[in-house]
Amino acid sequence: MSQTRILVLVGSLRAASINRRLAEAAAKAAPEGVELAIYERLGEIPFYNEDIDAEGEVPAAAQALREAVAASDAVLLVTPEYNGTLPAVLKNAIDWASRPYGAGALKGRPAAVISASISANAAKWSHDDAVKALGVAGADVVKEASLNFGVIGQRFGEIHPADDAEALTQLAATVLLLAETVNARANA
């Protein structure tokens, strides 16, 4: 199995967010031959505006995201739930990476979603909205790789998800399924 590169987009910009910690734990749980890179610049990207999405006018931060998505083999979203849906920063990233229409960096790229919230709902509304937006954007959503974590304040309030054996096992399975999808396509 060759090296599989998965770009991770975290929907919470807060440095100490549990969603970010889940992304870090997923990177730790990645099997040999799979590299997860957490994208650090989502907060720098302006809201999508077709007026500035023109040749020579694309903001550097948006272009950097497009290039990072294009250089990856797959994309993994880790999303909290804000007011019953996905955070604007993730929706904005999907919007930029989906353009130009029909040929954006997300087109045909395998993608999976991990959602987590303090409620028992486990951010399932946000998860469903992320899956929908990725699918409309042209990504190949690997629904079997979906993962939801509820009541994360209680579960991970005192410990890092990387120190939770069950969470590591679940994260490793999600990453493995996404990587297997990439490899199956490469060998098809």
Rank of each mutant, 00 (worst) to 15 (best):
G153K: 14
R20Y: 09
F156E: 06
Y39W: 13
L106I: 02
Q170N: 15
R109L: 13
S98R: 05
A133E: 05
L178A: 03
L76C: 10
E81W: 10
L42W: 03
L134Q: 12
G104N: 00
Y82L: 12
R109M: 06
R21Q: 15
L76G: 06
G104W: 02
H160P: 01
I6W: 07
A64W: 03
D95A: 05
W125V: 15
K28E: 12
K132H: 15
I114R: 10
A137H: 06
K124F: 14
I118L: 14
V131P: 09
A145M: 05
V69M: 04
Y82A: 12
A23F: 07
A62S: 02
F47H: 12
A145V: 01
L13H: 11
A122M: 09
G157M: 09
A116C: 13
V175C: 06
L168A: 11
A74H: 08
R99M: 02
E40P: 14
T169R: 15
D140Q: 13
D53S: 03
E81A: 10
I159A: 07
V175W: 06
K132S: 13
L7M: 12
P31E: 10
A23I: 08
P100S: 00
I94M: 02
A88I: 09
R5L: 10
S115R: 12
L176P: 00
G104K: 02
A26S: 12
A103F: 00
P87S: 14
S2R: 14
L22F: 08
A27P: 06
D95I: 04
E57Y: 00
L86R: 04
L168H: 08
M1D: 09
I18G: 02
W125H: 15
P80C: 13
T4R: 07
D140P: 00
A165D: 13
V182H: 03
L147E: 03
V89K: 08
G104I: 01
L36N: 06
E180Y: 01
A123N: 03
N121S: 14
R109G: 02
H160W: 03
Y39S: 08
F149H: 09
S119K: 13
D163K: 11
V8N: 09
